[in-house]
């Protein structure tokens, strides 16, 4: 599978990675060679094989409905880049 620079641009946008135009060729080459390795999967016969999303074949353990979280807003927000009045801030979003 070979990716074009346009494919790279699209996937970079999906992942919100701001790539320089000059980087696109290099990434297209590298990602294509990774996908070449991955394409090996196509040869495997997986008829009647159920997908395995998890190494353990277990059901979820459920939690009791107790609101007992320790919430230290001050500590959580000490590492935040822009906070005012307890609110995280980002550049203005227009809906």
């Amino acid at each position: 599978m070979s990716l074009t620079t346009d494919d790279v641009r699209k996937v970079a946008h999906l992942a919100r990675l701001g790539l320089d135009e000059t980087e696109l060729d290099g990434y297209a080459r590298e990602l294509s060679s990774i996908l070449d390795v991955v394409d090996h999967l196509g040869q495997a016969d997986t008829a009647d094989i159920a997908p395995m999303s998890h190494p353990l074949d277990l059901g979820a353990r459920l939690r009791e409905d107790k609101p007992d979280a320790a919430i230290d807003r001050e500590a959580f927000q000490r590492v935040a880049p822009d906070v005012a009045e307890g609110v995280y801030r980002v550049p203005k979003v227009i809906e």
């Binding site: 609110v87 995280y88 801030r89 980002v90 550049p91 203005k92």
Partner: peptide, 15 residues
């Protein structure tokens, strides 16, 4: 919640 009116040039985020 996004607080669009809370600040002039920023949107506030209350989680």
């Amino acid at each position: 919640k996004s607080l669009h009116e809370a600040f002039d040039r920023e949107t506030g985020i209350d989680l």
